[in-house]
Design a protein around this nucleic acid. Structure first.
Lengths: 213, 213
DNA sequence: AAATAAATTAACCAAATGGTTAAAATAAAT
DNA sequence: ATTTATTTTAACCATTTGGTTAATTTATTT
């Protein structure tokens, strides 16, 4: 009997997560969440008082799941090239397993940027101080050692993340326009990127490409 | 008296454009559009029968404005490196002047991918046939000539567009997390990218970097 | 100037929506 | 067993929302 059945609260939470990610805050409906969870709508308000409160809880969880974790690699003292390879691989796995989350987060944050501070204390500072700053240090060192072409750490990290996330959030356009709605080709395209992105980035910043593994 | 005052229909159209881009389809309110346009709500339905119809008209216009145009460079017979430089410069200008459009298009297309076919005939095929296929040709030739490292055209074009668009759609996160909400630093960051992106891409794919202008 | 057509509005409507209430069912404590 | 607390529901409610109608104002024709 290891099969611990989910509590009502958890059931609501995951049903609401699905609904919010599918439709966004504005498009999501409390009635539909209740339906997905197989419960009465009033129960939603019993556990989470308002739609906003329910959303906030979910947004924080999603954001936490998505931001850190994979940034740990950045703190190791491995070479930048290795860090980039491992980061891209791990981050793409996370994204490909949750392909609707990036556009969800992006949309909600653009719609209401005030939601970021709510999540700030918990994660953001952690990521900034531990992950990004260490990344910047490592980068600077390898630039000074003549291994990497000069580049701002902010530019490099945004480039890497852009290359990972964009192809997923722009799926309808890429699949539709470039691959003429051929799902298999789009899937193969995403798959290739697991190696392609790191190669592309490292090729760009390596001083001596011949020395690359 | 060259100052042709906008027709009611145009006034509605642009008020609605603002509202939809700000709030998305689900968050937009017909009443608010009427208010922005300074007219009675019933007039909206007089000119555009439903919210959907109004949205469709706007989405198509926005999409058209954003997709082609800048892709013309791709059709010239200049060198790939030059094409990339010109494309990035022009595309960034377009994006920076309309920073909310990319996330709007991305969100609406993810929410309802069926909207792409609606716009298909007009633009998409044009872009695909004229711009992308020509781009792929040029790329292939320069790869065969040994000027450019082998790379799939789909990967390269998506990389370039990702590097242009992502920093704008992810503004809240980048400005908040990396630049600690310092607007000036974020702005400077975006500005740097006008040269940075082309440099980054060309560095990655050039066989012999020393020959780069 | 009169008649006709087009544009605009105020008032209204039905459906949907987030949220509440009071009662019923279930579980926990005594 | 009985009380007490917790969980769940059915029925409501006020507000908002997209949309309509019928009348009024403005522009166009004749």
């Amino acid at each position: 009997m290891t099969e611990q059945e989910k509590s009502t609260e958890e059931t609501i939470f995951s049903a609401a997560t699905d609904e919010f990610i599918d439709k966004g805050f504005d498009g999501a409906r409390m009635q539909e969440i209740a339906k997905r969870a197989g419960i009465n709508k009033a129960l939603l308000h019993y556990y989470y008082r308002t739609k906003e409160k329910l959303f906030d809880a979910i947004f924080e969880k999603v954001f936490k799941t998505f931001m850190p974790g994979i940034f740990e690699v950045m703190q190791s003292d491995a070479s930048m090239f290795y860090k980039i390879e491992v980061f891209v691989e791990g981050y793409l796995t996370l994204i490909y397993n949750n392909p609707h989350i990036p556009s969800f987060v992006i949309h909600e944050l653009n719609r209401n940027p005030d939601r970021l501070p709510l999540v700030f204390g918990s994660i953001v500072n952690q990521v900034k101080d531990k992950a990004f700053d260490r990344f910047a240090e490592s980068l600077k060192k390898e630039i000074e050692e003549g291994k990497i072409i000069p580049i701002e750490p902010e530019q490099l990290i945004v480039n890497i993340i852009a290359l990972c996330i964009f192809p997923v959030v722009a799926k309808p356009i890429i699949q539709g326009v470039i691959f003429e709605n051929d799902k298999a080709r789009y899937k193969a395209f995403l798959d290739s990127r697991k190696k392609e992105i790191a190669r592309f980035v490292i090729n760009s910043i390596a001083v001596n490409r011949d020395q690359i593994s």
